[in-house]
Simulated assay, not measured.
Amino acid sequence: MQRIALFPGTFDPVTLGHTDIIDRALPLFDKLVIGIGVNSGKVPMFSVEQRVEWLREIYKDQPTVEVTSYEGLTVNFCKQIGAKFILRGIRYVADFEYEKAIADINRKMEHEVETIFLTCSPEFSTIASTLVRDVIRNGGDAAQFLPDAVSSSLQYSKLS
């Protein structure tokens, strides 16, 4: 049986913190689905299409990675794609407390789906999409927090 994991998130934008978790998770699973959750209650800075495009560009040479978007409950999407694992990245203790509560609810709804936590590498622990959006929104240079595919497209969009 294939070990399929879903890495859900908004990825608004994709940061080096996200890619750190993804890169380190690749050897753990046969297939890793990066799922961009669409939440009608949130207004993202970047379109779903843009975020999918970034992730597909970053992982174009990685055949075990699939990028898609989904709506609704994450555990329902896991069933839909055959994922038995949900991958989550943890930066701080507060992240763990929040993520554990979600994992517990997911486990009650779908007993066969396990949540796997990976702590991010120390050099990426301060990178949060919320903070990166603030830097971008206020005209700062966020390149040091972003994969090249993301920062180069932002620089290009500033020129146009």
Rank of each mutant, 00 (worst) to 15 (best):
Y70V: 02
Y70H: 05
E71C: 07
L73W: 09
T74E: 09
V75K: 05
V75M: 10
V75H: 11
N76A: 14
F77D: 03
Q80F: 07
Q80R: 14
I81M: 08
G82T: 10
G82D: 05
A83I: 08
K84D: 13
F85S: 14
I86L: 14
L87N: 05
L87A: 08
L87K: 04
L87Y: 08
R88Y: 04
R88C: 01
I90N: 00
R91K: 09
A94S: 15
A94V: 08
Y98G: 03
A101K: 15
A101P: 02
I102W: 11
I102S: 10
A103E: 04
A103P: 03
R107T: 14
K108L: 08
M109A: 15
M109L: 15
E110C: 13
E110N: 14
E112K: 05
V113F: 09
E114I: 06
I116Y: 06
F117H: 10
F117R: 10
L118V: 09
T119F: 15
C120N: 14
C120A: 15
P122M: 07
T126K: 06
T126C: 03
I127D: 01
A128T: 06
A128L: 02
S129L: 02
L131V: 07
L131D: 04
V132A: 02
R133V: 00
R133S: 01
D134E: 14
I136R: 08
N138R: 13
N138L: 14
N138H: 15
D141Y: 04
